[in-house]
Write a protein that binds this DNA or RNA. Structure first.
Lengths: 265, 265
DNA sequence: GATATACTGTTTATGGTATAAACATTTTTT
DNA sequence: AAAAAATGTTTATACCATAAACAGTATATC
C-alpha cells in the first residue's frame, strides 16, 4: 500500500504542519505586507525561553511578547503550538554528527551516537518533555536516525534487524538522557540552595520500602544506591556505560553467530 | 547523608502529596461530614476517562461531573492534578506479577517482566503520556522495580550493576510499550475509518528521504520497514523480541565473564 | 449536653491557556 | 486601477487549574 511516489506538495499535506514546515515545504507567501518575523526567529525564542524557564513557560503570549508582537501574530507563521513543539524538537536535533569511522570501529561509533544523543537532553532539559507522537519524521531528527544506522550499514543485517538495534540504542540514550537531566537539576538545586533540595527521597524510601513486599529492592534502597545519593560526585558516565556495553556485547554476539552461521551453511 | 530513619509522618511530608496518598500515609479525617467520594473512586473515574478519550480529556471538571460533583470537591481528596496523575500512574502499575522462577530461568523471568510492563502501555494508552518526574517512588511502581530485580537477586552483581540492568530493561520496555501503543492506535484508526488514517507517513517519507543526506536511512524508508507499513499484521512481538534477546545475551556474557574472572582470581 | 473545631461540597472569582473571527493596512498580481 | 492575499492587531470564546469564602454537618472536648 502507498508505494507510489508523491509530489512534495502532496507530501506536505499528509504531514503535520510542523513537520511540513521543518522540511521547508511551505512556501513563503508572495502577496501581502513583508513579514516582520521569521519562523527561525520564533523557534529560537521559544527555545531560549524553554532553556531558561522550562517547557511549561513557553506560551504563545510569552514568545510573542519577547519578540515585541502579539500572541496571535505567531499564528501567521505556525498554525498551532503543537507544530511549534515539533519545530523546537527538530531544532534541538540540529547537532554536528561525529565523523564516520572505519567499519571495525562500529562499537566506538555507536558509543559516540549514544553520547551525542544524551548530550541533547543535557543541553536542552526540556527536550524530553516534548511528547513523542510517533516515529521521527523531521529532517534533523532523521539525520540522527541515519547517524545511528551508519555503523550498521555494511553489516549482514536486514532492515528489521537494523531498526531493532536503532530502537535499542535510541531508547537507551533517551533514558540515560532524562536520568542525566534529572541529576543535573538535582545538583544545580542542591548546590545553590541548601545542602540538598526537596528532590531527595532517600529518607522516605528507607522508611517505606520494607523487606516484606520489596525483598529485592530493599537492600538497594537501604544502601542509598536506588535514590542515587552520591550520584553527583560519582562518575556519572559509568551508569550509562554499563548498559551500553551490555547492548554492544549482545549485538556483537549476534553478528558473530550470524557470520559463522552463514559460513557453515 | 540522610541515613537516619524517619517516621511515616515525616516521610509523607518529604514526598509529593500524590506519592504520600498512594502509600496510604494520609489519614482520613475524623471530624466533619462523611465523605461522599473516595480517592479510589476519583482515580478510577479518571482512568476510565483517560482510557476512553486520552489523558488530555482528563480534567478536574470532567472527572467531578462524571461522579456527580463539582470540580472543586475533588480538591478535598487530592491536593492537585499532578498528584492525581501520580495516583493514576501508580494505579496502572497495580498488575499481577508472574510467579517466581528458579534462578537458572532468569532469562525467561526477564522476558516476562518486559512483556508485563509493555502490557501496561497497551491496556492504558495514556500511561506513557504521564511525564516522568524522577525515579519511581510509589508502591505499585516499586513493586514492578522489585519484580525486575527478582531474577538478579542471587547473581554476583553489586547494587549499581543491578540497577543498571533494571534501567536497561525498563527503558526498553517503555520504548516498546509506546511503539506498540502507536501501532495499536494506527490499526484501530485504519480499520474503522478508511483504508488507512492520516497517521501514515510512508508516502511522504519516500518523497523526502533522499540518499544524499540520509544514505543509511534511505533504503530502509524505501522498503517500507521504517514507517512499519505492514506492522499491523506482522508479529509485533518480533521487534520487541530481537532487542530483548540482544540485551539478555549481553547480560549473560557479563555474568559469565564475572564468574570465570572471580574463579581465576 | 453545649460548644468549639474541623471537615464537607458549593459558589464565585482569578489568572492563565490556545486559538477563532473580524479588522484596517499593505503589498502583489491581474 | 482593481482585486486578491497576506500582514499584525483587537476582541472574544471556551477551556483550564485552583484560591477564597460560604453554609451545613459530624466529631471532640469541655
Amino acid at each position: 500500500m502507498s508505494n507510489e511516489e508523491v509530489t512534495p506538495e502532496e507530501a506536505a499535506k499528509m504531514l503535520p504542519a510542523g513537520a511540513a514546515l521543518s522540511w521547508g515545504l511551505v512556501k513563503p507567501p508572495q502577496r501581502g505586507p513583508k513579514r516582520e518575523m521569521s519562523i527561525d526567529q520564533i523557534v529560537s525564542k521559544a527555545i531560549e525561553i524553554a532553556d531558561q524557564d522550562g517547557l511549561a513557560a513557553v506560551s504563545m503570549n510569552r514568545i510573542a511578547s519577547a519578540l515585541g508582537f502579539t500572541a496571535m501574530s505567531l499564528y501567521r507563521y505556525i498554525p498551532s503550538k503543537d507544530d511549534l513543539l515539533i519545530l523546537m524538537q527538530d531544532a534541538a536535533c540540529d547537532i554536528p554528527l561525529t565523523p564516520e569511522r572505519p567499519p571495525h570501529e562500529w562499537r566506538e561509533s555507536m558509543r559516540e551516537y549514544v553520547l551525542g544523543t544524551v548530550a541533547i537532553f543535557r543541553k536542552h532539559p526540556w527536550y524530553g518533555d516534548i511528547p513523542i507522537l510517533g516515529i521521527p519524521i523531521t529532517p534533523n531528527n532523521l539525520r540522527i536516525v541515519d547517524w545511528a544506522l551508519r555503523p550498521l550499514r555494511d553489516m549482514p543485517l536486514d532492515h528489521f534487524e537494523k531498526m531493532s538495534i536503532v530502537l535499542l540504542l535510541s531508547g537507551y540514550a533517551r533514558n540515560c538522557g532524562m536520568l542525566q537531566r534529572d541529576i543535573d537539576r538535582a545538583v544545580q538545586a542542591g548546590s545553590s540552595e541548601e545542602e540538598f533540595s526537596g528532590i531527595n527521597y532517600s529518607a522516605s524510601l528507607r522508611t517505606l520500602v520494607k523487606p516484606e513486599p520489596y525483598p529485592n529492592l530493599y537492600p538497594i534502597v537501604m544502601s542509598g544506591v536506588y535514590s542515587g545519593e552520591n550520584e553527583a560526585e560519582n562518575t556519572v558516565g559509568d551508569d550509562l556505560e554499563f548498559g551500553l556495553e551490555r547492548m554492544l556485547d549482545g549485538i556483537e554476539q549476534y553478528l558473530n553467530r550470524k557470520i559463522s552461521g552463514s559460513i557453515h551453511k
